[in-house]
Design a protein around this nucleic acid. Structure first.
Lengths: 134, 134
DNA sequence: TATGGACCCTGTAGCAACTACAGGGTCAAG
DNA sequence: CTTGACCCTGTAGTTGCTACAGGGTCCATA
């Protein structure tokens, strides 16, 4: 039963995804509802595969499901100016940069806290002190 | 009704937390179950307040709930060597550093993708191309 | 033809760490 | 005695999956 028809397992593997994830994407409307075989198996084609790989690649780049949904929506309006695409990507980049800044601050503070440990008892541990604000 | 007794609202505000969060910490066993007033209000004291602030500070530094639980457990064994504290903190620092590395890689890739946009139609958008692996 | 194992199906619950109600009760001030 | 701010319990929602349980299907092999 494969004249260009892909089972969910094959589709998932091609996108390095789990079968459950594929069904999840269908449930939330990211992947269109596929045809079914006589035995009630989902029957996918190349279009589904491309779409799934687009989703995975976007997710790997940290785009949220809602951002992916927006990107997919734009992908179908091929004549539109790509400004909207650009702005979703830039907004996401800004988010990533905020997270990096936050984590860098966190890292500095953790290092400071850890650096104070003099290896005594917990009662006199500076790490614990640092975690106990006045 | 305040001879050293704190309501949940006052406690929460002192730790810059929401009331629901305090109840949540109680439910999962991070905060001890407090006494109740005649009207069935939770009645907290300074110890609770200190403990809550410890929790919040740890959470702000990115420790997971389970890590906080471990730290709180250690806080009660005041004679023990503080090596365990140190190792929880260092493990967390390593995690943070891994996340920073991941985000830096992500940032680089996003910048590359965004830099390719030439502001045409979506059909010819390089960002979309970059999101569509072969 | 029977059977075993790999695959598929639906539906539900779990993870982290809260947050947000709904639908009530309590308390203090005016 | 009413108003409004606070408190109570219990449950469901958030994000993005993942992990079952309890079945059905398909295909190769004995």
């Amino acid at each position: 039963m494969n004249n260009g028809v892909l089972t969910i397992g094959v589709l998932a593997k091609a996108a390095d995804t789990k079968v459950e994830t594929v069904r999840y994407y269908e449930r939330i409307g990211l992947l269109p509802i596929p045809a079914r075989t006589a035995g009630n198996y989902r029957a996918y084609c190349e279009d589904h595969s491309r779409r799934l790989r687009f989703i995975r690649r976007s997710r790997d780049l940290g785009f949220s499901i809602e951002q992916v949904r927006a990107l997919l929506g734009l992908a179908d309006q091929r004549d539109r100016d790509c400004g909207a695409v650009d702005s979703i990507a830039k907004e996401h980049l800004a988010e990533v940069e905020r997270k990096i800044a936050d984590l860098n601050a966190l890292q500095a503070e953790l290092r400071k806290v850890i650096g104070q440990c003099r290896r005594g008892s917990i009662a006199e541990c500076r790490i614990m002190d640092a975690l106990s604000p006045v």
